[in-house]
């Protein structure tokens, strides 16, 4: 599975405008709502916040991977955003977050949900990827980068 195949210009945002976690989740869920990938905005947000309550998905070094499952989501969907100024995401290392990958899946989904998280992990671990992602000025540049690094 390729992350690139789950994305298009409507689900990638460069740069993100939000400054904190809640705003950021809303901003990225809205990308998915506007592109018609999910229908129940409130439910998606609630599920994401519930997962954040178990502990933050700001995993450190400027990266956050919020993810959740909910019945209202039909297919596995992904949104990606880059923030130049950084987002207060309550990260484990207290650093601001610059690269956010948001993942939503149906409750019954098991394998592909985890696999996609692993794929995302592989992607952000490519040496130099993070730095290059921050240099992207438009969503199409970011898509090209993901395409070439995957």
């Amino acid at each position: 599975m390729r992350i690139r195949d789950l994305l298009d210009e409507a689900t990638v945002k460069v740069p993100l405008e939000s400054v904190d976690k809640e705003e950021c989740l809303e901003e990225m869920v809205d990308l998915l709502v506007r592109s018609g990938r999910i229908s129940d905005r409130q439910a998606a947000l609630k599920a994401l916040l519930k997962r954040e309550a178990q502990a933050t998905t700001g995993i450190g070094k400027g990266i956050a991977l919020p993810h959740a499952k909910h019945d209202s989501i039909s297919d596995l969907v992904v949104a990606i955003g880059v923030s130049k100024d950084g987002i207060e995401f309550d990260s484990v290392d207290d650093e601001l977050v610059h690269f956010v990958v948001l993942l939503l899946a149906n409750t019954s989904e098991t394998g592909s949900h985890l696999r996609t998280l692993v794929e995302v992990a592989r992607l952000v671990e490519v040496p130099g990827f993070f730095r290059k992602a921050l240099d992207c000025k438009t969503s199409s540049e970011l898509l090209d980068l993901i395409d070439s690094e995957e």
Binding site: Q54, T56, T57, I59, K61, L65, V118, E125, G128
Partner: peptide, 17 residues
Amino acid sequence: VDEDLPPLIEFPLRPSV
């Protein structure tokens, strides 16, 4: 291993979860 990145993607969890 690129020092700028986490060694393995690891999600923190509260022990009370």
